[in-house]
Amino acid sequence: MRAVVVNQAITGIEVVDHEKPALVAHGQALVKVEYCGVCHTDLHVAHGDFGQVPGRILGHEGIGIVEEVGEGVKTLKKGDRVSIAWFF
């Protein structure tokens, strides 16, 4: 997948090819994000205001299609269009 991440020098961001995340916890779903906002919190993360996090994937407000649902997910199914609120 393509992702915007905090660069290794923690001086900004870069677009990279990144391994697709796996579902590892109860209640998770994997969403293929089509559109994603970058908010002020992402800028704080990129600038290291919350600690040094090189490689951290940015963007947490998105729209996409559910690709996979994990154990315990009852309200979503593969193919559902979803929005991802900032607090999830």
Rank of each mutant, 00 (worst) to 15 (best):
R2D: 10
R2F: 12
A3W: 00
A3K: 01
N7H: 08
A9P: 06
T11I: 06
G12V: 05
V15I: 15
V15N: 04
V16P: 13
H18G: 09
E19F: 05
V24K: 13
Q28F: 03
L30V: 11
V33W: 02
V33R: 00
Y35G: 07
C36L: 01
C36M: 12
C36Y: 00
G37A: 12
V38K: 01
T41C: 03
D42L: 01
D42Y: 02
H44E: 11
H44N: 09
H44M: 11
V45Y: 12
V45N: 03
H47Y: 09
D49M: 03
F50S: 08
F50N: 13
G51L: 02
G51K: 05
V53R: 03
G55T: 07
R56H: 12
R56D: 04
R56P: 00
L58W: 04
L58S: 00
G59R: 00
H60L: 00
H60T: 07
G62I: 00
G62Q: 09
G64M: 11
E68H: 02
V69M: 08
V69D: 06
G70D: 10
G70P: 11
G72H: 13
V73H: 01
K74A: 13
T75R: 08
T75I: 11
L76E: 07
L76M: 06
G79F: 06
G79D: 11
D80R: 01
I84Y: 08
I84M: 10
I84R: 01
W86P: 15
F87Q: 08
F87S: 14
